[in-house]
Design a protein around this nucleic acid. Structure first.
Length: 499
DNA sequence: CGATTGGTTATGATA
DNA sequence: TATCATCCACCAATCG
């Protein structure tokens, strides 16, 4: 792949150093956290109070089986980087790493995945599992037990099995069905859990009616699964895996085959977790960061993802080949979204300050002109089509939520909304619920703001005493209207429900 | 223009 | 309860 303005060698090297360090640190951190927690939970289990928040349970019985070094270095030479390139920065970093490797070897590290997620090729789920012995296969069994709930004809068009379901993929949006007022969504103590350690970057419900399961990806490359209605002795059913070596930028699940889950990572990998095969398969590998990923509702055999500084890729999963690679933006692409109503229409949002609407049929390798450009004054963190496809909601660091409408998306209005998430909170993304009526977006004062489309303003804020951090990432349940998952920078997931 | 630095912000662990 | 370490977002300012 060319160097067309995606990232300089220097940036890449620097990022790699940082990534390498953080992988190490993250591994250590997870070790120590796991150890601490297993100690804590051991003592706490005796006097466990009912008010405690559910949390992932690190395995305590699993044998440490670290054979391979945790850090797999990629040769600089192999990538054409001069050998002296890793001077000041690199050497310092390496010094730190080596010390910590020594330290880590003296640690009693239980329940640590035996493979480095940076390794190419498939990773067995068993090897990246971070839970108790004996539970490695439970998640697969659960997911494989879900029925296939959607029929697909030869053209990739969906014929729904229920009047509730309209076309969709990233989630099956429910049509015009009326439902309770959004202000009435409530938070119950049993619908709170700490699913992963650290900051959550991505969150997704499994698109099935058979159970409520969320998958979340964090900054350390962990993916945690929470079976919300599941029960085990502690009341939480959480499965933690470590398939990536860096922040998990996106998760998408094949709606026609829920045992296929794709995840993208800043480290440049896209993996597909196959419950059937029991592996995190490697689908794609890049030397650039992958910042966003999406599945097309009209063709689930193509993955679309944002790579490096503005790069965009369409990847054919079956042939394992790129079917389109081009530059769409001047900076990272934060989200990719498809219009579920109109085939071939796609929206991207970018840190370059714009969101764009594209016609996939008009896209080509060289410069493609978008159908529409929505301009913000700062980075745009999301651009999502409404369930009907009539609106596009954009969320930007310029403290605006944009609402674009019209037959050709010709009119845009802006609603003020404070979006200064700073460095520690994942950026806000205004999402749609189950109809075109409102947009949900995080609030720095620990709430969920609801913007009414009709009124063009903020109409309410969901709040709760038991919401103890800022909800920054959301996913509405694709089938269960009024079930909204929210995630925080502390690894917690809160699920709002209708009374 | 590319590189670099500094400022901002919330959370969970810890003392 | 207060303090500390975090450091993968973004922007403004500065230097070469």
């Amino acid at each position: 792949m060319g160097s067309k303005g995606k990232m300089t060698d220097y940036e890449r090297r620097r990022l790699e150093n940082i990534q390498r360090n953080n992988e190490m640190l993250a591994a250590l951190k997870v070790h120590s956290k796991l150890n601490d927690l297993s100690a804590a939970s051991a003592s706490a289990s005796a006097k466990r109070t009912s008010g405690e928040i559910k949390s992932y349970k690190p395995g305590s019985a699993k044998k440490p089986k670290i054979e391979t070094p945790l850090v797999l270095r990629r040769s600089l030479r192999a990538r054409g980087v001069p050998p002296d390139a890793s001077t000041a920065n690199g050497l310092d970093d390496d010094g730190v790493i080596d010390k910590q490797i020594n330290k880590s070897r003296t640690m009693n590290s239980n329940s640590v995945p035996s493979v480095s997620p940076r390794k190419q090729g498939p990773i067995r789920m068993h090897d990246s599992f971070c839970g108790e012995d004996g539970l490695e296969n439970k998640l697969s069994e659960l997911v494989k037990g879900c029925s296939e709930n959607v029929l697909l004809n030869g053209n990739g068009l969906i014929s729904s099995d229920s009047v509730d379901v309209i076309k969709g993929c990233k989630s099956f949006k429910i049509g015009k069905k009326s439902w309770g007022r959004v202000e009435e969504l409530e938070l119950k103590p049993e619908n709170i859990a700490r699913v992963v350690p650290g900051r959550i970057m991505s969150l997704r419900f499994f698109p099935t009616r058979d159970m409520q399961m969320v998958a979340v990806g964090n900054k350390f490359g962990d993916i945690g699964f929470w079976h919300v209605n599941g029960k085990d002795e502690d009341g939480a059913e959480i499965y933690l895996y470590h398939p990536h070596a860096g922040p998990v930028s996106g998760i998408v699940i094949d709606p026609f085959s829920v045992s296929k889950m794709y995840s993208s990572c800043y480290e440049g990998f896209i993996r597909m977790m196959s419950m059937e095969k029991g592996v995190f398969d490697m689908v794609y590998h890049s030397e650039y960061c992958i910042y966003s990923i999406a599945l097309s509702p009209h063709d689930v055999n193509s993955l679309y993802f944002g790579e490096g500084k503005g790069g965009f890729n369409k990847w054919d999963v079956r042939t394992g080949k790129s079917s389109l690679s081009c530059d769409l933006h001047g900076d990272r692409i934060n989200t990719i979204d498809f219009n579920t109503d109109t085939e071939n229409i796609m929206a991207t949002s970018s840190t370059d300050g714009t969101a764009c609407i594209w016609d996939l049929r008009l896209m080509k390798k060289e410069k493609t002109t978008p159908l529409k450009i929505i301009k913000h004054k700062r980075a745009v963190h999301s651009a999502y089509f409404s369930p009907s496809g009539k609106f596009l909601a954009t969320t930007s660091y310029d403290d605006k939520v944009g609402l674009t409408s019209g037959a050709n998306y010709e009119s845009t209005s802006m609603v003020h909304h404070y979006n200064q998430t700073g460095r520690w909170i994942s950026t806000f993304r205004g999402i749609w619920g189950w109809d075109d009526s409102s947009i949900y977006v995080g609030n720095m004062k620990r709430g969920v703001d609801v913007i009414s489309v009709d009124e063009g303003r903020l109409v309410s804020t969901l709040q709760s005493d038991i919401l103890s951090a800022i909800p920054c990432r959301f996913d509405p349940h694709p089938y269960n209207v009024g079930v909204l998952a929210s995630a925080t920078s502390g690894g917690q997931v809160y699920i709002w429900t209708q009374p």
